[in-house]
Every structure is written in C-alpha cells, then in structure tokens.
Amino acid sequence: MAIDSKLADDLKSQGVHVTSFEGLINWGRSSSLWPLQFGLACCAIEMISATMAKYDMARFGAEVFRPSPRQADLMIVAGTVTKKMIPQVVRLYNQMAEPKYVIAMGACAISGGPFKDGYNVLKGVDRFIPVDVSIPGCPPRPEALLHGLITLREKIAQEKLIGQHRARHADPEGPGDLPVPVCGAHDIEPAFNPDVWNPPSFTRDASAS
C-alpha cells in the first residue's frame, strides 16, 4: 500500500523516514552492488578506470570488486567473449548467489562487435546469460559505465519482491543454474540457450533487397 506522499514528507521533516519493506530492501541492494572482478578485453581498462579516483565508481556503492563469484552481485562482462571462454563465463554466473545482475559492456559483449564474423567470437553474451543492462560503445567511456550502473540501480529500485511480476530471484519457481555450453567439434553446443535468448525472427522480402 502506497503512503501518501504529503504525509511522508511531513514525517520526514520530523526526522521519520517512512518507506515500504520492498523499498528498503531494493535501496540496500541497489546501493551496494559488488561487481565480480574479471575483464576480458579493452573494455576492462575503461572499467578499471571507472573505479579509480577520477571517475570514482565508489560513489555508487560498486567499488568493491570481488575476487570470488560467491561474494559478487554484479557481473560486468567487459570485452570480447570467445567461444572458448563462454563455458567459464556461464559457470561464474552460476556460482554467483541471487540476486545477481549482468551488465554487458561494449559492442563485443552485446553482439560480438567488430569481431562478430570471427570463427571464435560469441555474437553476444546474452545468448547464454540474461543481461540486465547493455552499454554500447567500443569501448564505452567510464561515464557510460557509470550511466549503465545508475540505470541498473533504477531497475533494481523498481523490482517487485512479491506478486505476479516479482523479480526472478524472488520467485521460488525461477530458473536455477543455467546449462553450461560444451566446446564441440565445430562450434559450442548448443549455440545458444533457448530459455534465455532466441534468434530474432523477422520478415523481409528476399527479392526486394
């Protein structure tokens, strides 16, 4: 039940902060996002820069890069994901505890970027793990990463913990570990996880192009 905003303001002026339990939990979660410490390519350099004094990601509660996926809330996929690498990325994602979030940073993590026609480059990490925020750029500037982080914070603040539209991590029936792809004889198998991603189907007149 929503609180009358005028009443909330009156109480606030008296030093009483009124919020919902959901709002309190989401505020806590969004204000201490601990990223997993791993970088894959040049985007990682921008990510490192974003944590340093000039850009100071600590202002948004995300300065504590964790060396273990067990302690991390946020996976920043910063760089080109090769097909040889994706089983390890999915395994790290599975090892993170819920609630967990993923930022795909840069063109390569989103779609394969300039290397998407390469034989060993995955055309987007969203084929295997659910991505919350995508940051375009090649590589994105640290400000863009900060904007992505703030976008994720806003998304977390809107999360529902109960009811039909509750978040994935609040749903007991939600998906558990994602299947880890296997490096096969000619390609990774499967080529994508159909529960997470499916090829876009679109209609186009073949003769008109």
């Binding site: 779609s111 034989y119 055309k123 390609d187 080529a191 090829p199 876009p200 679109f202």
Partner: peptide, 14 residues
C-alpha cells in the same frame, strides 16, 4: 579456421 575452405558455423544474427 584459417584454411580457405573452412565453413564457419551458421549462427547468423540480424
């Protein structure tokens, strides 16, 4: 993969 007759897997995207 660097041989001329290598056929890459068909994971076409939009």
């Amino acid at each position: 993969p660097m041989r001329k007759d290598y056929v890459a897997p068909d994971d076409y995207q939009y």
